[in-house]
């Protein structure tokens, strides 16, 4: 019996981690969504420069991180939150979870990439959500990529498109918003009609990007050659191919007004312990070294106009005319759009 107790005790002790939490005064805690990625060197650099410890904590996806921050309002467990994008900005501002801060380097950010005029959320990165296609599949079936969204409702593309549920997926929502932008809401043929036709044309809806991309996209064993993804995805395919390739196996479908510009940023949480340090980090995040490090990790673009863009991004074409619905409007109408969409497509 004593043996058993000893074993149990040992098990508990082996699990005991290093004492949690360092010295609170010079510790900076940053809450991020789980797609966030940055080089360890950069963090060490910041730590050395400011004689502090930086802790990056993943808090689920962007929506979950935001909910968490809202639930912790006033007594946040972090100093900074990274991951607010233009679809969530409205709610973040309404819940007043951020302090205002305008870093100097904002001057280096082109106006179109400024997320929040009120100065609570500072843009750090941006990207585009649009359709990707499987080159091999199209070639095998004698298809060319569609040049308008309407084409997707035609026979050629029946059962060949997979999208994500806007209620649960960020790119899914982005694509939905771009259809709102493209077709409009009150026209004869509005976005809901489009989606009705898509449904009739056997569109597949998946709950998240990972499921859609890795189980239904024909590139990875599914039977759908068109998928809603990021403009940078082909660049990632190029970089992460198993054997070196000249061009990526997937490409972008860039239709005017059908690509969604997604900007994400970070803000200082109200009630944070290390406010000054937090502000310094935002400055740091807008600096060139930070901005040039994350593109090939997160596959998003740096907002700082002076930051150079990696070579692999030549396969990530930039759409000439992304959809143009502002964050405020999104904040207001988003729930209605999602509900209407759900009604039309899923029920």
């Amino acid at each position: 019996m004593r043996q058993l107790a000893a074993i149990v005790l040992m098990m508990l002790m082996t699990a005991f981690a290093v004492s949690c939490g360092g010295d609170e005064d010079s510790e900076l805690v940053i809450m991020t969504h789980d797609s966030f990625n940055i080089g360890a060197e950069l963090i060490s650099q910041f730590e050395a420069e400011h004689d502090a410890t930086v802790v990056l904590q993943s808090a689920g996806d962007a929506g979950e991180a935001l909910v968490r921050a809202i639930l912790e309002k006033g007594n946040p467990s972090a100093d900074l939150l990274y991951g607010i994008d233009n679809t969530y900005l409205g709610r973040a501002l309404d819940e007043e979870i951020f302090d205002e801060y305008r870093p100097d380097l904002l001057d280096e950010v082109p106006a179109q990439f400024v997320l929040d005029d009120s100065g609570h959320v500072t843009s750090i990165a941006y990207g585009y959500v649009n359709l990707n296609y499987d080159k091999q599949y199209l070639m095998d079936h004698g298809l060319t990529p569609p040049s308008t969204l309407e084409e997707l409702t035609e026979a050629d593309w029946k059962g060949r498109l997979v999208v994500e549920d806007p209620a649960s997926s960020s790119p899914g929502l982005a694509f939905l918003i771009s259809t709102v932008s493209y077709f409009g809401e009150d026209d004869d043929y509005d976005y809901l009609d489009f989606w009705r036709d898509l449904r009739a044309n056997d569109v597949l809806v998946k709950d998240g990007w990972t499921a859609a991309y890795y189980t239904d996209f024909s590139q990875y064993g599914g039977d759908r050659p068109l998928v809603v993804s990021y403009a940078t995805s082909p660049a990632a395919e190029f970089l992460f191919s198993e054997t070196p390739v000249e061009v990526p196996p997937t490409g972008n479908i860039l239709i005017d007004k059908a690509s969604f510009l997604q900007i994400e940023g970070m803000g200082v949480l109200k009630g944070a312990n290390s406010k000054d340090l937090a502000k310094k980090f935002i400055d740091f995040a807008l600096g060139r070294s930070f901005q040039e490090d994350f593109p090939e990790k997160m596959f998003v673009y740096p907002v700082n106009r002076n930051a150079s863009i990696p070579d692999s991004f030549r396969f990530a074409e930039v759409p000439s005319q992304p959809s143009d619905i502002g964050a405020l409007e999104i904040g207001e109408k988003r729930e209605k759009w999602i509900q209407d969409w759900t009604e039309v497509v899923l029920r």
Binding site: S35, W209, T210, S233, A236, F240, S241, F299
Partner: peptide, 15 residues
């Protein structure tokens, strides 16, 4: 968690 992280980006070697 490590698996999810790898699958949050496209790419054969990630998969």
């Amino acid at each position: 968690v490590a698996i999810f992280r790898l699958l949050s980006q496209p790419g054969e070697s990630n998969l």
